[in-house]
Design a protein around this nucleic acid. Sequence first.
DNA 1: ATAGGGTTAG
Length: 583
Amino acid sequence: MGMPQLELLAQRNTRGIENNSRNHPFQANFETLNMQRGLDSQLELSRPLLLQMMILMATAPPPKFSLPLIDKKSRGKHSFQSKYVFFSNKPYPKFDPLTPNLHFSYDTVLTPASPAQAKEKKITDWNTKIYEVCEMGNIHKAIELLYMSPKTEIESRTYCSILQLSAELKSLQDGKKVHSFICSSGISIDSILGSKLVFMYVTCGDLREGRLIFDKIRNEKVFLWNLLMNGYAKIGDFKESVYLFREMLDFGVEVNSHTVSCILKCFAALGSVKEGKWVHGFLLKLGFGSYNAVINSLIAFYLKIRRVDVARKLFDELSDRDVISWNSMISGYVANGFSEKGVELFKKMLFLGVDVDLATMVSILQACANCGDVSLGRAVHGSGVKANLHWKTTFCNTLLDMYAKCGVLDGAIRVFDLMGVRTVVTWTSLIAAYAREGLSDEAIRSFHEMDREGVSPDIFTITTVLHACACNGSLENGKDVHNFIRENDMRSNIFVCNALMDMYAKCGSMEDANSVFLEMPVKDIISWNTMIGGYSKNSLPNEALSLFGDMVLEMKPDGTTLACILPACASLASLDRGKEQIT
DNA sequence: ATAGGGTTAG
């Protein structure tokens, strides 16, 4: 696009933003789009140009990520366009004039035969009827017809089409009905029908049943292996996924790019550095490198094991980077503590005109929070509103958190007030925002309000609100939360217990802290340090020292432990003990 | 043909 057009567009869009600022509650007015700190610092791009780019970015067509959602929903409804897929390559011969006896012929449709004849056709042609109903996405009708039909007449691929539909509608209930019908019909479950059954079960979230069938029909089709591996990865059972991968190799299945991206994700999650690198080598050998998704997963793998340098090298060498490559790299920088680098890459992205989406914005907002760069944060806010991202809870949650972390509490509250859907993350972020500003009463009030609104707190919420109580020294509120923990059976969580002990210690009740400590099923170094430090700070040096003695029997103290114990030694004037700890 | 890579709070 030539420069004049760019300017024209920018002008038009400026007005757009101004209009928006009047109408939209977020008030992303143009003044707030100043990017002094965020964008001026790197001189490679001039400020006006960047501004224009931000605007351009903001007016980009609705981001792609929303489209698949719509697509999926409208499938099946747009009945005649949707094509249900079969394992068989042969299409259904519906309306095929050459086979008038087996299926509806043009004759049947255009010039109905005698009523008796037509009736008979309708009754005998169960397979075609069911197929057609499936094509229209009517699962209930399909199953109704299935129940009405004589079992011996239903063909394998008819079952496949209903199973496919059940999978698309994620209706495990209907899929199960079809499965039991198949079992009672006595038809043999061959590899095609079996695959469809596995596909249905995995898609509908019943991995166990899917696996049972998979194990029975085990074959070398890579698709099914990938499907199950992915299913396990999705529920966080990475070990099972890796197990399947090894089996797959033993079985002689030829892996493909889907397999590779899945296994890399698993290795990253399990922290299996050596194995992941082995996959990298494997890729180099096999020349899989041209697949974008594969390199992207490799980049994500290296970022997760904190090898930012390797990831960046892969990123730089990648010839056609897509938005996911950029997002991976940016979020990786942010997650590894290089927020400035993330922002730098973001600017480059804008400069090159790469489409920005929700994930990009979320990462950049995080980066803003980390750097305290509220100016850039506001710019992203404005752009997000323009791009209609403010309907996305994720975006608003991150935005809220960004304002809070930058110390702009009222900004955070405004975002909160205007949000349509508030999840547990939203509430937790708000509570943390209050706690951060030392407004513990407000934090606790929000906690109760959240409860009234019917949003259940999770362990993050609990630790946050306990922290608020601790800062406030409000034992009463803390005990309230403790009751909540007991009622909701969160006592076995180590983070919750550590936060509870810290709260009690800061509120001056070491007895309560100790009873939590004693009941803990598993203790980590933070548990010990919290207790020892608590005794120290509450002027109970003997208890601190005695607990320290217990601790060294179980685990190695760290620097924090020493920092906690030394004041106790000092207060006891126990030089010998103090020396003992140091050596 | 069906699947895959990046996204929020302590």
